[in-house]
């Protein structure tokens, strides 16, 4: 290779997420846990158009198709409530994403995962009841599958800002999270299979 001591290829795994909080989750929790070094790229960057995101995903998929890079897309299920998340609503969400990105579902189906309902439920799932209390969360059920962003905000008792998410990360327990959130558990299994 020209000019360098590159001890690994530059880009091995591209990890597309929706926003900054998702990026933080993947970089601080998923990557160390799975012992991976992905480039985590938020699709909803400030003031950027959806067109740019779709072009980016298409390039990444083409690169994956050629075998240059692995690719994972993690998006929120955005279902109205957890009870409604099933194979049918999943298909609808895939179709919606497919339409937004201008790509056919069969091009990305094997590499897409969903945080149900939103990534905030995964954050909360990793805290045991003691830690939730310690961090000032209102009483909530251990299971977080039904937690949306709004519900997370309403039980957290304080501003949902970077210090709060960082504090959660500091106390995060993966096993607890897998126990408390089915979509997170499924995602962990999926990513393990995908990367093996």
């Amino acid at each position: 290779m020209k000019g360098g001591n590159a001890i690994r290829p530059l880009l091995q795994l591209l990890f597309y997420v929706e926003g900054d909080i998702d990026q933080l989750f993947v970089e601080k929790i998923i990557a160390p846990q799975m012992n991976i070094e992905p480039r985590v790229i938020p699709l909803k960057a400030n003031f950027k158009s959806g067109k740019l995101a779709s072009r980016k995903i298409r390039s990444a998929l083409e690169s994956k198709r050629k075998g240059y890079v692995d690719l994972i897309i993690l998006i929120d299920s955005d279902a109205d409530n957890y009870g409604k998340w099933n194979e049918e609503t999943k298909k609808q969400r895939i179709n919606q994403f497919s339409k937004e990105m201008g790509i056919k579902p069969n091009q990305f189906q094997d590499c897409i995962s969903f945080a149900v309902i939103e990534i905030e439920s995964w954050y909360l799932a990793g805290l045991d009841m003691n830690d939730r209390k310690k961090l000032g969360f209102k009483k909530s059920t251990p299971i977080t599958d039904h937690i949306s962003k709004q519900q997370f905000q309403s039980i957290c008792n304080k501003k949902t800002d970077i210090p709060l998410y960082s504090e959660i990360i500091k106390h995060y327990n993966i096993q607890e999270a897998r126990k408390n959130n089915a979509s997170f558990d499924q995602f962990m299994n999926q990513i393990k299979d995908y990367l093996s």
Binding site: M1, G4, A6, Q23, I41, K56, V69
Partner: peptide, 30 residues
């Protein structure tokens, strides 16, 4: 470590699709 992005196949794919290294740097791909 150092890398030459212009030698990376995935980066080349992005460039062929009209992205620039600067855009890839800003969005965290690089």
């Amino acid at each position: 470590t150092i890398h030459h992005p212009a030698n990376d196949q995935t980066v080349i794919q992005f460039i062929e699709d009209g992205f620039t290294l600067a855009e890839l740097m800003v969005d965290n791909t690089l």
